[in-house]
Design a binder for these strands. Structure first.
Lengths: 217, 217
DNA sequence: TATTATTTTTAGACTTGCCTAAATTTTTTA
DNA sequence: TAAAAAATTTAGGCAAGTCTAAAAATAATA
């Protein structure tokens, strides 16, 4: 069995690997886990010993197949619990991250599979993230970042890449909700902010920082 | 905030205190927590420093008001999660203890109160144990142990004092279920086993060990 | 490309919760 | 009630996961 802490490192490595090319760096992990680089190095040696990561000193890190399978198992648990918290207990999508962060470590496969049945096999969590399969694969979505689409394109908001309450509450205040349709009118050359039309009469500016955390299709 | 381990000690002290007169002993705690007496002593000193227990060296231990409040909070969480696991996810009452043992440490009061609402304010867990109130008091039940009632009395099985799968499965096999009515016919003077009638035509022997773990009213 | 700056690793130490072995206190029993 | 037994505590140590400070490796720059 793997410790709470090991599980969190695997999950974080997976998360960082999907958001940047190449190997995941020690410093990036230190920042994400709110620890120091020296602590990360210790843990990396441990995970490498357990064959959960490929690790060459000074060269960064990458999950092995087994490591990725485990990371996806944790992420599956996390996302199913988020669905439970929002759909069954009525929490807001901006309130559930920290609770799911604890619930994801409950060690019972049977529990997770029964939860999946109970929630009627959801495909996506409340933030639009796909829920990995029980066998440990991540469903492909084909979503793009709003910051990467062409001017004039009409799309639908399908998910978010950032789960902090601050970001999610900002979306709610500006009217950008999951499932919301919008058309990209123009991209400001100066600060890369976007003018998007969400109603026939209503358009608003979206910063580049927001746009690169919004997934659309 | 208190650690996972501290919470478990508080819960165990509460549990032992309700099952025996006087102070809870170091050895009893060591056995319940599957650790050694020396480890228990370490933790008792720590809990005493935090004013969660009254502790005099060699004299055993007793919860303070604050300690009892915290213990009941953990027990409340445990029992509510057990109700969830049985009623919503369809687990058997003999399967849920270990999962609830982990879920009880999830640190969100909001989560527990919403769970309570969602489960429609259950009064008892699947084993018939009363669920403590949000303010930290244990509802009185007036239940007696089956081993302590008079011959000839008719009663109803309301709960169990032992939650191990082995014990609960034994009950299921012998037909002793929660809510089941029975009449105590006689008590064997030799081994204190009980002859109980559960149907007009059906009577069976119940060992003293089983009888002192069955709560009736 | 030699030097500076940055990143990463090593070395040594701290905390929590646990252990074993030995010392101490309490309880039991002869 | 004194000796033996049992329970409890103390002393010293270990593993996990963290830290700071210093050393080593890599990357950036003059």
């Amino acid at each position: 069995m793997h410790s709470f802490t090991e599980e969190n490192y695997l999950k974080t490595i997976y998360y960082l690997a999907t958001r940047q090319e190449g190997e995941v760096t020690t410093n990036a992990l230190a920042e994400m886990t709110a620890t120091k680089a020296a602590s990360v190095t210790d843990m990396l040696r441990k995970l490498a010993d357990k064959q959960l990561i490929h690790y060459r000193k000074y060269q960064g890190v990458r999950l092995t197949e087994e490591g990725e399978r485990l990371a996806l198992k944790i992420i599956r648990r996390h996302r199913l619990w988020e669905v439970f918290l929002v759909q069954k207990l009525g929490f807001g999508w901006d309130e559930v991250h920290d609770m799911a962060e604890e619930l994801e470590h409950i060690r019972s496969d049977e529990l997770v599979e029964r939860l999946d049945v109970y929630l009627e096999y959801p495909q996506f969590d409340p933030h639009g993230d796909p829920i990995p399969t029980p066998t440990g694969t991540m469903p492909a979505t084909g979503y793009q970042k709003l910051s990467e689409i062409q001017t004039g394109t009409s799309v639908c908001i399908m998910g978010v890449l950032e789960h902090s309450p601050e970001f999610l509450q900002h979306l709610a205040r500006t009217g950008l909700t999951l499932g919301c349709s919008l058309t990209l009118r123009e991209i400001n050359a100066f600060d890369k902010s976007l003018l998007v039309q969400i109603q026939p009469e209503t358009a608003l500016f979206v910063s580049h920082d927001v746009a690169r955390n919004l997934l659309v299709a």
